[in-house]
């Protein structure tokens, strides 16, 4: 088991094709990241997030033979999670819930996204900024989360969303712009 834990993702994928227990190790490696990603995107309750994550893992397992070793396994897993989330919203017609970004998470978006001071002067202002981020359309919120919360490189975001680099850069720029204008609309100027 200790030996298996030292294996790379790609090796574990090969093992998991014939041995589901090896897949357990992959799940162990990525459940934290994927769970957080799903939670931030969907704003579902922890139980629902777990259910959705299980579907993601099952999907990953079923698609192990489609894994391209040129990609980082994490990017590929995030891609499946992204597709599953989009599919979930389509099937259920549900709209994202609100208020699931932790303070440190949205501070990352604000800090990295629009080059503002990271330190928020008062709690009231902090809530307003948080509401602006929560109000962003899903695609912009997702890309800002990937870039500034998950701290993914552009190439990784390309692989996750299957979008060309130009589109990724445009989405990030537009996301920042929308966030900035939302903050201006609400007279949020407390940094």
């Amino acid at each position: 088991m200790a030996e298996e834990k030292a294996l790379t993702d790609a090796h574990l994928v090969e093992l998991a094709k014939t041995d589901p227990e090896s897949f357990g190790l992959l799940m162990e490696r990525y459940q934290g990241q994927l769970s957080g990603y799903i939670r931030r995107l969907t704003r579902l309750s922890p139980d629902d997030v777990q259910d959705l994550l299980q579907e993601v893992f099952i999907k990953i397992y079923q698609n192990l033979n489609a894994y391209d070793r040129d990609l980082k396994f994490s990017s590929w897993a995030y891609r499946i999670a992204h597709n599953q989330v989009v599919d979930y919203f389509r099937r259920s017609g549900a709209r994202p819930q609100t208020d699931v970004l932790e303070d440190y998470e949205w501070e990352k978006i604000v800090g990295g996204g629009i080059q503002l001071e990271k330190y928020i002067v008062n709690k009231d202002c902090a809530e307003k900024v948080k509401a602006c981020i929560e109000d962003l359309p899903l695609n912009y919120r997702e890309i800002l989360i990937l870039r500034f919360v998950e701290e993914k490189e552009y190439e990784e975001i390309m692989d996750i969303l299957k979008k060309p680099k130009g589109s990724v850069a445009t989405l990030i720029a537009r996301g920042k712009e929308i966030l900035r204008s939302k903050m201006e609309e609400r007279n949020i100027n407390c940094f």
Binding site: E21, G24, M27, Q31, G32, Q54, I58, Y61, Q62
Partner: peptide, 24 residues
């Protein structure tokens, strides 16, 4: 969290879920 992994593995086994063949 541990439960999720065990649950998923047992679901894979009980529902006989397998990776789809590469040729597909």
């Amino acid at each position: 969290m541990k439960n999720l992994i065990q649950d998923t593995l047992s679901r894979i086994k009980t529902e006989h879920i397998a990776p789809e063949p590469k040729w597909k």
